[in-house]
């Protein structure tokens, strides 16, 4: 028996909008720790890891570990029927091949049940070790989204370079090239507007902008984004999900042939 009640149902709606472009089908795993997902995109260069900790739910009942295969486009269709202020509850019985999404309006005057068929999905779980990153950049998520969008009108790839001067996003294409430098800036009115650069050593890596733009679909979840870089490792782009967890996107760098 599984029953997860999330008062801030809009978080789940935003999570789905953040990942459905990247991943078509995925297994949602429920355990005592929380509600999680790890899935790769079809070309196996990007991976999304979601964790919503059990403490973040108003009610969290998970009698035994359960893996539920879902088509994310279908989940998104279901969740779009929930109001932004609705409380969302996920329910599944042991051995059932369906999951039920229950939507309650804040004043309890409307209650809806949407039952969705589950599917069997073979998924490869990657063992991602904890890594020491050469540079960690924390910046406003809207600013990062703007940079990725702007650069993708010029080129297909972005070089992200971190030095003592700041973090530089560069691209080049047929019509020309572009460089955007963001300097560390902690003298702002609100902490979420700060750009903070923790650098152990300079790092410069190249990534496909198409994936970066896809990651920025998570922007509505958090005012800030954290970008962790190490040479010869995938970049980690992390958005916090309120105080209950995170979405992390991993993207393999482009390598010179």
């Amino acid at each position: 028996m599984l029953e997860l009640r999330l008062v801030q149902g809009s978080l789940l709606k935003k999570v789905l909008e953040a990942i459905k472009e990247l991943v078509t089908d995925a297994n949602f795993d429920c355990s005592a720790t929380g509600f999680s997902l790890q899935a790769m995109d079809s070309s196996h260069v990007a991976l999304v890891a979601l964790l919503l900790r059990s403490e973040g739910f108003e009610h969290y009942r998970c009698d035994r570990n359960l893996s539920m295969g879902m088509n994310l486009n279908n989940v998104s269709k279901m969740l779009r029927c929930a109001g932004n202020d609705d409380i969302i509850t996920l329910k599944a019985d042991d051995g059932s091949d369906t999951v039920t999404f229950m939507f309650e309006s804040p004043n309890q005057d409307k209650i809806a049940d949407f039952e969705m068929k589950l599917m069997d999905i073979d998924s490869e779980h990657l063992g991602i070790p904890e890594a020491e990153y050469h540079a960690i950049v924390k910046m406003p998520s809207a600013e990062f989204a703007r940079i990725c969008k702007d650069l993708s009108s010029i080129g297909d790839t972005v070089v992200i370079s971190v030095t003592k001067e700041g973090v530089k996003f560069s691209t080049r294409g047929d019509i020309g090239n572009a460089n955007i430098v963001c300097r560390q800036n902690t003298t702002v009115d609100k902490p979420e507007e700060a750009t903070i650069i923790e650098m152990q050593e300079p790092v410069s890596l190249t990534f496909a902008l198409r994936y970066m733009n896809s990651f920025t679909k998570a922007t509505p979840l958090s005012n800030t984004v954290t970008i962790s870089l190490s040479s010869e490792l995938p970049v980690v782009v992390e958005y916090k999900v309120a105080d209950m967890g995170y979405i992390r996107f991993y993207l393999a760098p482009k390598i010179e042939d």
């Binding site: 790769m40 070309s43 260069v45 190249t206 991993y250 393999a252 482009k254 010179e256 042939d257």
Partner: peptide, 14 residues
Amino acid sequence: GSSQAQLYTFYQAL
């Protein structure tokens, strides 16, 4: 030119 590495190159599947 450059090519896109796969995540398998970096992380082993469990």
